[in-house]
Amino acid sequence: MYAYLIRRILATIPVMAVVAVFVFSLLFLSPGDPAAIIAGDLATADDIARIRERLGLNEPFLVQFGKWVFNLMRGDLGVSIFSNLPVSKLMLQRLEPTLMLTSTTLVIAICAAVPMGVIAAWKAGTFIDRGVMLFAVLGFSFPSFVLGYLLIYTFSIKLEVLPVQGYTSISKGFGPFLNNIILPSLTLGMVQAALVARMTRTSVLEVLAEDYIRTAHAKGLATHKVLIGHALKNAAVPIVTIIGVSFALLIGGAIITESVFAIPGLGRLTVDAILRRDYPIIQGVILVFSGAYVLVNLAVDIIYTFLDPRIRF
């Protein structure tokens, strides 16, 4: 058990190292000279050269990389080219809305999708099953920005029950927070719910054909006990896997959703940084998102051990 955990944790190190190399190379791989961008349209060649010197852009790649990693270890992600503020501070300011949006989305998506998938599997072939599958296909193929505007149009403009956009911190009360977060979460969660519902259905359906399900029925257990107590636990590993993998969708989706709903989160920060070629911020955001992805999948690996005893040993 512990050997497994340590192995998993150690395995994240090379992943993060590759991410770091990639993120740093971004500066060199992308077109355009950051020094020239900072200097602006009216700068002379001398100005640009001076800025290059100041940012250390003239030093060899490996030296620059070494310095960058060294700073990274101390939590220093560099300074924004435009605002001259530390990237870590800028990101921290934007962290809460994104964190809240993604976690609310995850909770809503899982709470809706897993029961839907289980029921679809149980009622496989019926119109209930077809309904869930139709939802899954639609949810997956519907662009989130279209869905977002549709929701705004329906609930904010026509029915006037929810705010059009913006974000209220949870520290200002749960009610207002929920009011603001519900539409973005639905928008963001649709793809994920569709994916998880599909996977749940497939996985449960497969498990329902197993001999031990027949044993459970032969014991006299009620259907819901067989479904939840016996089938779902066996079906859980692929479901949890897909939730972990789909976390990437969540991050990508958050960037679009935050733009549609004007939420001042990391996604907006990213979009703004890309438009301005504010490389340190882009690097910081990618690192944090990758780190979060790796952590979520580490959590998934740990959850496996609770779901399936065969993995534990």
Binding site: A218, N234, R310
Partner: peptide, 19 residues
């Protein structure tokens, strides 16, 4: 089921819930 009449099956390897 399981009370007045119970049943055992051919495949002991797969008839018990693995988790």
């Amino acid at each position: 089921r399981g009370n007045d009449i119970s049943m055992i099956f051919q495949e002991p390897m797969t008839s018990l819930n693995p988790v």
